[in-house]
């Protein structure tokens, strides 16, 4: 009402913003992404629930690679440096991000962890996210790919319960495959069917970190993914 008379009455003015709330995180993530790809590094955001076998898969990867110096890892956890210590013991240079009470990693935490972390010669950087199937899916870290570790002991309908996580997954590692003979009631087809309902392209590799089953296929997938990511980066850079 009082638009022109200048009587000084307050008026409610709408201001269109149309901006992502996590824009600041996304900017840092984009910076991380450029840094990784520019240095020839495939950064993988490895997610999964607590105890899904994320660290174990990375240990198995370190043991299987001819040159573990090409691999590095940043391990996020609420407390302890246990995961990073296990990876160092497996030959992978690693660093811990202790998140305290934060249930996820974000781009800024990842960015800061890269300071004073020598990634010379590294081709694969694994960002082992906090064990959690909800929060980590929300934050872009600057990774090239999202990989979700899902153990065969977690229940066939797990993907349906956490659609956000699986919608963003480029690959699912079905872990603890060596336990299958002891779990006659687990139907792997039901797991892949559940994934097809939440992942547009349900890529699955069954692995056992204990026996090494599937680790070669996983390493081959990583190598191909790195080639594709770097080629794409060079085209658009």
């Amino acid at each position: 009402m009082c638009q022109d008379c200048g009587c000084g009455d307050p008026e409610v003015v709408p201001v269109k913003v149309q901006q992502k709330i996590l824009a600041r995180n996304d900017r840092t993530a984009a910076h991380n992404r450029e840094h990784f790809l520019g240095d020839g590094i495939l950064a993988v955001n490895l997610m999964g629930g607590p105890g899904a076998g994320k660290t174990a898969v990375l240990e198995a990867t370190g043991r299987a690679l001819p040159d573990p110096k090409k691999v590095a890892a940043i391990a996020g956890d609420l407390a302890t440096e246990n995961d990073a210590n296990r990876l160092i013991a497996a030959g992978i240079r690693s660093k811990t991000i202790t998140t305290g009470q934060a249930c996820h990693l974000d781009a800024e935490l990842v960015h800061r962890s890269l300071h004073h972390f020598d990634l010379d010669g590294v081709e694969f950087l694994f960002i082992e996210n906090v064990g959690n199937l909800v929060c980590p899916a929300v934050y872009d870290l600057g990774q090239a790919l999202n990989v979700v570790a899902l153990s065969i002991t977690e229940g066939e309908d797990k993907p349906l319960k956490y659609p956000t996580m699986f919608a963003k997954a480029d690959l699912v590692l079905l872990t603890k495959a060596d336990l299958l003979p002891h779990l006659p009631f687990v139907d792997v087809d039901k797991i892949t069917d559940a994934l097809a309902h939440v992942m547009p392209t349900p890529r699955v590799i069954s692995v056992s970190s204990r026996t090494g089953f599937g680790v070669e296929a996983w390493i081959r997938w990583l190598a191909n993914a790195r080639t594709a990511a770097l080629e794409k980066f060079e085209v658009y850079a």
């Binding site: 307050p10 409610v12 992502k20």
Partner: peptide
């Protein structure tokens, strides 16, 4: 074809509505 996500992952600040004492001095946005 594998599906594409058309809507549903929004975490968006759409609009702010503010009370401004002197509207005549406000730049229109």
């Amino acid at each position: 074809e594998p599906a594409r996500l058309d809507a549903g992952d929004e975490i968006l600040l759409r609009q702010i509505e503010m009370e401004v004492p002197d509207v005549s001095g406000l730049r229109m946005r």
